[in-house]
Simulated scan of single mutants.
Amino acid sequence: MNKLLAEDIYYLMVLGRAFEYAAKENYMKGNISGFLHLDIGQEAFSVGAIKAFDKGDIFATYREHIMAMARGIEPKSVMAELFGKKTGVSAGKGGSMHLFEPSRFFYGGDAIVGGHIPNAVGCAYARALQGNEDGVLVIFGDGATNGGAFFESLNIAATHKLPILFLCENNEYAIGTKITRATPFLEQAKKAEPYMLTYSVDGMDAEAVYEAVSSARKQIQEGHGPIFLEAFTCRYEGHSVSDANSYRSQQEMNHCKAKDPIEKFKKELKQQWLCSDDEIKNIEQKAQQTVNEAVEYAQNSIDPDVNALFEHLFYEESKNVVS
């Protein structure tokens, strides 16, 4: 990592938090409807992982706003999608949980917990057949590791030595259920140990996440087969905006927020990369301005035409499909 990359990561983390707070505010105003899952507190994980996996395919969970922007999708297009506008990244049809941009190899937002993991394995299999070394990154929460498709995916990936990185975001809660109430241990990497190499990382440390994902990505590119990486994080909000988060004590939340990833990385910018207060302030102001412009863009964008309801309902022949 160098200073330019560190500054970019900090910008994206600050952008992500400001974006999420703006999304929450507009949800409360009624400008955003449906489901909204905020990533506040987990910015180090979302930005660090995506920046490290700069090539290849990415399959993400439905808590993917920050990941999408870190991948290079315009914040205004993401916000417009949340508003259900035609100018949104998914043309207003996906909303918060379905941010999809093939040009960025970002197949993110799957509303089914763990539903995207088999898809990612299939993509990795295709990559292997094509001789493409970029590989696949699939991101999922700790709750997804209890599903049958998760173990089937591990088995297939390991058997065929596929170029895929399984990245588990362990915030210790599957919606409102503590992970240790649904599985006998906290470390979900134990489930993958019989199948592949496993590692763990502090998901609240952006540089640590970046380095861990970079290292794992290099291994899968070199033909070592699949890797399982577990990042321990903490989300500050409830599962979604409709979740009061009442199942977590104030003591737990205070402990969680004491590890704030943005404040931690700000200190690193000053100490390790010698960034001045003015440089950091400029980054923060730029991020906030970008979010303000994204909200304005979404507010002024048009709604999808009603006929869009009848598009993409049935199979359409594709030149990329071999029959």
Rank of each mutant, 00 (worst) to 15 (best):
K3L: 01
S90D: 04
A124P: 02
F150Q: 03
Y210N: 03
F53V: 04
Q299M: 13
C234W: 13
D134E: 15
F185R: 12
M28G: 08
S46Q: 15
R127A: 14
Y297I: 00
A216C: 15
K319W: 08
I283K: 09
G84Q: 01
I262G: 12
S77K: 15
K85C: 09
N119F: 11
K190W: 04
L269H: 04
N31A: 07
K266T: 04
T233W: 09
E268Y: 11
G34V: 00
A206W: 00
G84C: 03
Y199C: 07
Y125F: 15
V89E: 07
D278Y: 14
A287P: 06
L309A: 13
Y11W: 09
A68L: 04
L165I: 04
A128I: 00
R217A: 14
E25N: 11
K319I: 06
I139S: 08
L167H: 07
F83N: 05
G41Q: 02
Q251G: 12
I283W: 10
H312F: 15
I112R: 09
A126T: 06
K76A: 13
L38P: 01
N31R: 08
L99A: 04
E317Y: 15
H116A: 10
A308F: 13
A157M: 05
F150G: 05
G108R: 00
Y315V: 02
K319R: 10
I280V: 09
H160D: 14
L309T: 02
L12M: 07
T180F: 12
I32L: 12
D142E: 13
A60V: 03
P194A: 09
G147F: 15
L36W: 02
I262V: 11
H116N: 08
D260W: 07
F100N: 06
L186M: 11
F310E: 10
R181I: 00
E311I: 01
S153C: 01
P194S: 09
F228A: 12
E211C: 04
Y315D: 05
V47W: 14
S90N: 05
R181L: 13
G92H: 04
I164C: 08
E169W: 05
V78D: 07
F166N: 08
N171W: 01
H312I: 02
D54N: 14
K55Q: 12
N320E: 14
K264R: 15
G143H: 04
I66M: 11
R217M: 08
Y27M: 05
G108I: 00
G109E: 00
T61Q: 14
F53C: 12
Y247P: 01
L137M: 10
L274F: 14
A294H: 02
S103M: 09
D134M: 06
V209A: 11
N171A: 06
E222W: 06
I262Q: 11
E237Q: 14
A44W: 03
Q221E: 15
L38T: 01
Q271P: 02
F310L: 10
G84V: 00
V14C: 11
E74C: 13
M196C: 12
G88P: 03
L15T: 01
E74Q: 14
E230M: 06
N155S: 13
G115A: 04
L167Q: 04
G84H: 03
V295M: 07
K267D: 13
E268D: 11
I66F: 06
M13L: 10
G92Q: 03
T233L: 10
A216K: 07
Y10E: 01
H116P: 02
I50T: 07
T145G: 08
N171T: 01
D303M: 12
E133Y: 10
I280W: 13
N245R: 06
M28C: 07
G148S: 09
